[in-house]
Design a protein around this nucleic acid. Structure first.
Lengths: 154, 154
DNA sequence: ATATCTGCAAAGACTTTGCATGAGA
DNA sequence: TCTCATGCAAAGTCTTTGCAGATAT
């Protein structure tokens, strides 16, 4: 692995797509790669500001759009009025997970449990829907809403 | 059924919650009740403007918030940067459906097929998640994304 | 009569766009 | 060198808020 590019040969991947490898892009990937939560554009901006104060919020938005379009990053909406981002990590469904969202405090838990059952059902559903509605299904979103342990005891 | 209140005794329901029954609220319910699509606040505003030109967009937002909170209307986010609304129609899960969204043209299809399988899986998943993460799950969201017949042939 | 609702205008929040400057290959 | 990327400021969208006047009960 080339030095200075973190895990994954991002530089090569960018070049391959005709994009340039810049400090800003590297930095966004660094921040997202280390994140343990789903980050908003501003979260990323603030974390990055400590290391690369020169990078503006606009660039973050533009970079995130690019990363989502390249499939490196996943953009989610938890109904807060702002988008959140996380690494897609790995090809096709590796690390595939869904979200469990607390409507009290907004906490989001990624769960990967029960996925086996889900996959089976989803495949059946996708097949059925594809056929009936003539859709080519490429993706799905599943979220559960409820109250976390702390909030339900209030 | 009292005359002039459309189907469902909305007037009584509002009164029961301590809310007043107004032209604006009736009108929002009328529009949503007749809708065959998921309407944005502005869609509702424009349709209502033909009949009740005096009602402003602000009131629509406030009314929708109320209706959602009362459980009469469901608010959805299809990732367009604006919310869309539809009648919840009927108590607990009647008319329960999910969405199939075309990422090409934005068309949204409600499907109610394959729900039986889904319900079974969801109950199992909910049970598992509740236990493991100590959540009290109250709701879920399932959306499939893909290309509709028209868009996939482009 | 009076507490609730409403319209208008303004503010707020997040995101995108225009354009001149700066930087990668 | 030459295109692509960036920062800044401004604009764009959708939505919410403040407040005086109107309305339902």
């Amino acid at each position: 692995m080339p030095r200075g590019f973190g895990r994954g040969n991002w530089h090569g991947r960018f070049r391959g797509c005709g994009y340039r490898w810049t400090i800003a892009r590297q930095s966004v990937l660094d921040v997202l790669g280390k994140a343990t939560r789903h980050l908003s554009a501003e979260d990323i901006y603030m974390q990055m500001h400590k290391v690369n104060p020169g990078v503006g919020l606009t660039t973050i938005y533009r970079t995130l759009e690019l990363l989502v379009q390249m499939g490196i990053v996943i953009k989610s909406d938890f109904g807060e009025g702002r988008a959140r981002y996380e690494m897609a990590e790995g090809p096709k469904g590796l690390n595939h997970h869904h979200h469990l969202i607390c409507t009290g405090c907004g906490k989001v838990i990624d769960y990967t449990d029960f996925i086996d059952d889900e996959v089976e059902l989803l495949q059946r559903t996708e097949k059925g829907l594809s056929k009936k509605y003539n859709f080519k299904i490429s993706n799905h979103l599943i979220q559960f809403y409820g109250l976390c342990q702390v909030c339900k005891n209030k």
